[in-house]
């Protein structure tokens, strides 16, 4: 068995990568669902097209952050078979590590009063 790589090794993540991991942390998803959810969560700021999503998926599969979870129908989307992906333990650790890193950044920004105190949300902040 190869030793599990340190999650910190992969940081920082690109925003699309991080968002894909976030979506998959909620459960198995197919490509279209990942795309839609990311778009909705970021209010359309991050739009993953087919051309960006799959190269990212390929890389995450290769690095062992996600794995395939079989092919099946999505009743909401008609008669087509869709391939589902799920987060691996490593993927979850990587996402967590990235969240930690971002949190530390946010804390630093707060220390310099670039952000309001915890609990006070700036205008337009809708939460993740």
């Amino acid at each position: 068995m190869a030793p599990t790589p340190e999650p910190q090794r992969f940081l920082p993540l690109t925003a699309p990568m991080f968002h894909i991991l976030l979506v998959l942390s909620a459960g198995e998803r197919h490509g279209y669902a990942i795309m839609r959810t990311v778009e909705e969560r970021t209010a359309g700021q991050i739009r993953l097209g087919s051309g960006t999503l799959y190269p990212a998926i390929k890389r995450m599969l290769a690095d062992g952050w996600i794995e395939e979870a079989g092919t099946r129908l999505d009743p909401a989307l008609g008669e087509e078979q869709r391939r589902y992906y799920r987060l691996t333990d490593l993927g979850r650790q990587v996402a967590g590590a990235e969240a930690q890193r971002l949190y530390a950044l946010v804390e630093a920004a707060r220390a310099y009063h670039l952000l309001p105190e915890a609990g006070q949300h700036p205008a337009g902040w809708e939460g993740v």
Partner: peptide
Amino acid sequence: FRAEYGAEMAQLFRDE
């Protein structure tokens, strides 16, 4: 890459 993801990408494009 095409063999692995081509079909899925086409599917996703149709959705989009």
